[in-house]
Design a binder for these strands. Structure first.
Lengths: 343, 343
DNA sequence: GCGGTTGAGGAAAAGGGTTTCCGCCGGTAG
DNA sequence: CTACCGGCGGAAACCCTTTTCCTCAACCGC
């Protein structure tokens, strides 16, 4: 039942106070368990608030305290394959509904990005998270931002900023160690475009892990694209040039799926003849692959969680510069089962 | 250069006014092109604002005007395949950065949802969009909401609410008409689980379109799951039971991809022997399919755009109840090219 | 009986803008 | 010379809630 009281049509604390027969200040104290009030008064006020469906305006308290319990989340990959898990992680860290996130999709347009930043700043967000896939370190969002900024997944070029990234090199090491452990010896690496930062990091991990295991790589890394077509092509070429290959580590699940199809069509069995590991652990690809694909999970949700935690920390205690790294995780499916007769 | 003026560390309009040598009221008028001021004064104030990097706090104006230029976007499908395009469309309608959206992922948990709703209401959002895939109409978010609510893609069970949905039945008609137009006569339909609302709508569309074309369906609709495995299985069974089939309309791109693989492995060529159309137009699947897949696009972005527009309209002029339908769009790729020798 | 103490609740300021209303000043017309 | 008017800019109210400070009354002990 609406009370004709205030302009907005919504009950304000003044309406609650009037209904309970107390002053505004007293009502506030009753609702926030502050001050010294008789229990009876407190209950009366709370009943009144309940009856009116009173929800306090955080706009007013924000104005008062200077904190909005609001952050901006800027994403640059509009399909959300990378930003969404980051958002989920951030939500975890920010507490369900404790702090809410304005999500802004820049569509990789710097003008739009600046618009959004200005808008966020005008709304007095407590901080900003910049999420999104980008091979290289990205230019800082803004110089001398009046609120903390944390970069998630895409790291800032400015070392004084705070970034959270995945340890892609470590992820590659994980994959190779797994293959070696399951008895593979002739391991090839098929990946994305030459010069792509992710490709570079993973190649480095592959070299390191192979060296540590005392193995020679099977040819140079195969650079191409991130597509299935490339994977199929590479599989055909690979089996032709290196018939003894017994495992392929792929720079993405998409490539790996192409490789799986290519191998099957060249008469190789997966995993019996050749084991396969991808990267991304992207369910619709990895799980539908024939056979289901072992994959390196980039742990993006944890990246988001860390970013959220660091942001909160920066808001409360000040800036924590540096690059924070999150480990990858290997998700084992059947594509890398040990070949029969091996360890 | 920070001015020691105010508490927050950020320049306020008082700082600007002081620097420009005018009163606060005058400064406000100068910055908002309001009132009668000498051009010189206006310029002086604007220069001061520029120098201080002044960004007005929309918290303050929101408190004053009662409008926050903020909406809530509640999503229920956490992979975002459906909600994200809706978000993008909504962003289009809300104007880049004019109105920002709090994005809340409920993970299909009603408790979390209520938390978020309360939080949004406390933040005095101007309206709420509920997005997300759900087969059936969903229960209303809240009864007697103090702000307008628009349901996007998942429609509300309450007819008095405002919902925007895609015309899934119409999408199926589009697909069948396309197949008929390119000379196919023996058209089968492979879809998801029996009883699923989307499956039901599409089956209805298929029947209608086939009847209109004077064709008999090839057997009953094939109900199964939304997976590739099901598609492969169905393809094998289909070619066995109906060797004369020359087209398959699939309930999703994933199924269609499975069917494509299954057909190829049964010795049928796509599209020469059998044409294929999917639903979703989900790029990573449709484009990587062999051959690239013709697909019915659900036009989710447009759904989001409509939802945004309707919400804005509801905020400004009041409620517009009813279910608004958005047409699907057929995206033609090579999987449905006319067989050689046909029209 | 009176001062001190404590418990309960009210009054008012604050926070950062916008807007309305008002006053001042200079120019112009009567 | 005075009255009026228009241009320009300032003072203050207002939005909603929290919080601090204050008042008032009752009760206690001496």
């Amino acid at each position: 039942m609406l009370v004709p009281g205030k302009t907005s049509g919504r009950a304000g604390i003044a309406d609650v106070a009037r209904l309970a027969g107390v002053s505004i200040g007293t009502a506030s104290k009753a609702l926030n368990d502050r001050g010294q009030l008789r229990e009876e008064t407190r209950a009366r006020v709370q009943a009144a608030a309940e009856q009116l469906g009173f929800i306090p305006s955080s706009v007013a308290t924000s104005l008062l305290t200077g904190r909005t319990f609001t952050v901006g989340l800027i994403m640059t990959d509009h399909h959300g394959r990378f930003s969404l898990p980051v958002l989920h992680g951030a939500e975890d860290a920010l507490g369900w509904a404790e702090t809410l996130a304005f999500v802004c999709d820049t569509r990789d347009d710097p003008i739009r990005e600046q618009h959004y930043v200005r808008s966020l700043l005008g709304r007095r967000v407590d901080g900003i998270i910049v999420a999104g896939r980008r091979a290289e370190a990205r230019p800082p969002l803004i110089t001398r931002a009046p609120v903390p900024v944390v970069y998630a997944f895409a790291r800032s070029a400015d070392e004084g900023d705070c970034s959270v990234v995945t340890d892609e090199e470590g992820g590659a090491v994980l994959a190779i160690e797994h293959l070696v452990r399951t008895g593979r010896r002739r391991i090839a690496h098929v990946t994305g475009p030459h010069g792509h930062a992710s490709a570079i990091a993973r190649v480095a991990g592959v070299s390191r892990a192979l060296r540590a295991a005392g193995l020679e790589p099977v040819g140079d890394p195969w650079y191409g694209g991130w597509s299935e077509v490339w994977g199929r092509f590479a599989a055909a070429a690979l089996t032709r040039e290196h018939p003894d290959v017994d495992a392929v580590f792929c720079g993405s699940d998409t490539i790996a799926r192409g490789v799986a199809d290519g191998l099957r069509e060249s008469g190789r069995r997966v995993p019996e003849d050749v084991a396969l590991v991808g990267v991304d652990n992207w369910a619709p690809i990895a799980e539908e692959c024939r056979p289901p694909l072992t994959s390196v999970d980039l742990n993006l949700r944890e990246v988001g969680r860390q970013a959220g935690r660091l942001l909160l920390q920066a808001i409360e205690n000040g800036h924590t510069p540096g690059v924070h790294s999150v480990d990858c995780q290997l998700v084992v499916r059947s594509s890398s089962a040990p070949a029969s007769g091996r360890t």
